[in-house]
Design a protein around this nucleic acid. Structure first.
Lengths: 257, 257
DNA sequence: AATTTATTTAGTAATATTTACGCATTGAAA
DNA sequence: TTTCAATGCGTAAATATTACTAAATAAATT
């Protein structure tokens, strides 16, 4: 909970502590019920947005992104990737992007207030285990919610474009690095990872051929354990082979889907 | 040619015209004599660096990068790709990165001069036809020279890391998009494109199988024209199929090498 | 003029991977 | 007991990749 005095102080004096020309936006992907989801926050104005924050003058980009992530989800040591820096949209160039700094701020705090300056944004995306995230909001957000990427509400600023670019990057990256270790629980089924890949790639993959590919790489291993799913045959559980997965992340691979 | 007065004005008052927390660095790749080369500039201090500049407050990132490129090579409408934003190295955090602003500037122009502030850098790489570049220098550089990527001089700031990251990005990207259209002349030989790919990938590709791959994609086409190379069999010339090449850039492809 | 040298062209064959697809097993609901 | 549908477990054909040799070429050398 942030008091009004703290908000005013932030607006007036924050420019001395934060980089004035930059912000960080974080696209937080989770996976649940065979849907890729993103974490969105609602401003007090009612607008939905990606998680974002300013960068402290002495803070690295990476640690700033990690801070945002921890503040929103309570998670640490998770997969976090810088993907693009945005600064060219009209909304960013105009410098009128900040719901913290409505028009009246120009009269109350001066036209050269740091919040009225153009903000270039360094975009990161994170892949997290949905079940482990403890979502929490704080100023300037009132609440956060998970949304399926197939039903994203209207987003402010250029956040729609940012989300699209993050998805495109993830979609391309999937050919060069395996994905899933961060999004799935430790033990998962073939249908779960299958649908995850189909969701990211936005295409249909043959249910009988797809597992052969991952197994031939050695990034996943079959367990003897099964999961009861009700009135159908119980699927086997699988886990990631940390060593092979790590090698595939490190050295790259090229997978056509 | 920039006068001393202009330099002083730039140092004193540039902060009102340029983003204070950001710069742009440009890795300009060319290809010549079967070597990948980069364009480097020498500061008056003797240090070698990547081409870089500040971003005007009203300038988009893309047009700033295009401006740097045109100023250095006289070229327009060329392949230019943002690849990573850098800000976390000690040299950048310390804010002591600028050879324009040596220690005495803190006394002469004040410790809060815009040039002494930390600069986060948005990195772009360009792929240009070496034969078309008209290289020219201006303040703060004294001269520019092409260097083979296998014999790069010591670079200031974190420019070595930036170059490495650009190469890595290019190396990864080559699996998702064809490369060469920007680096090779309109007509080229198989050995030329073969060595280009080998140089970027840093691995050996079979001389007999490699062309079949590009031909099977349809991105290159064989001409009936040959190029005399002296005391050996004249190789055929090839050209890019603009349509197929454009499709491969647009829709992506996945090529293992 | 013949021979040499080395680059390039033009393949073939073996192997690996991908693609397409069907049938059997399973397990709760009907 | 039967039904339904998800999952497991394949096989076969098509395609791509990999490994590699020999022929053609063209100026230099003898």
């Amino acid at each position: 909970m942030v008091s009004k005095e703290e908000i005013i102080d932030f607006i007036k004096n924050g420019g001395a502590h934060y980089l004035n020309d930059l912000s960080i936006e974080c696209i937080i992907f989770g996976y649940h019920d065979q849907e890729l989801k993103i974490l969105l926050g609602r401003h007090s104005s009612g607008d939905w947005a990606l998680p974002w924050a300013y960068i402290k003058k002495e803070e690295t980009l990476q640690s700033a992104a990690e801070r945002i992530l921890k503040e929103r989800t309570s998670l640490e040591n998770i997969f976090l990737q810088q993907f693009h820096t945005f600064g060219d949209s009209q909304v960013r160039l105009a410098g009128a992007l900040n719901t913290l700094a409505p028009p009246e701020i120009a009269t109350e705090f001066g036209e050269d207030n740091w919040l009225l300056k153009r903000k270039v944004s360094v975009g990161y995306y994170a892949l997290i285990d949905y079940t482990k995230a403890e979502v929490k909001a704080e100023f300037p957000f009132e609440e956060f919610q998970w949304h399926s990427i197939s039903s994203v509400p209207t987003l402010i600023f250029d956040h729609k474009e940012m989300l699209e670019k993050a998805l495109l990057t993830l979609r391309n990256q999937i050919h060069l690095q395996p994905v899933g270790s961060n999004l799935l629980p430790e033990k998962f089924t073939l249908p779960e990872i299958h649908v995850l890949y189909e969701t990211i790639l936005n295409k249909t993959l043959d249910r009988r051929n797809f597992p052969k590919k991952l197994l031939s790489l050695g990034v996943i291993e079959k367990l003897s354990e099964k999961r009861k799913i009700g009135q159908h045959r119980s699927p086997f559980l699988y886990k990631f082979n940390k060593e092979k997965y790590g090698e595939a992340l490190e050295e790259g691979m090229v997978l056509a889907f």
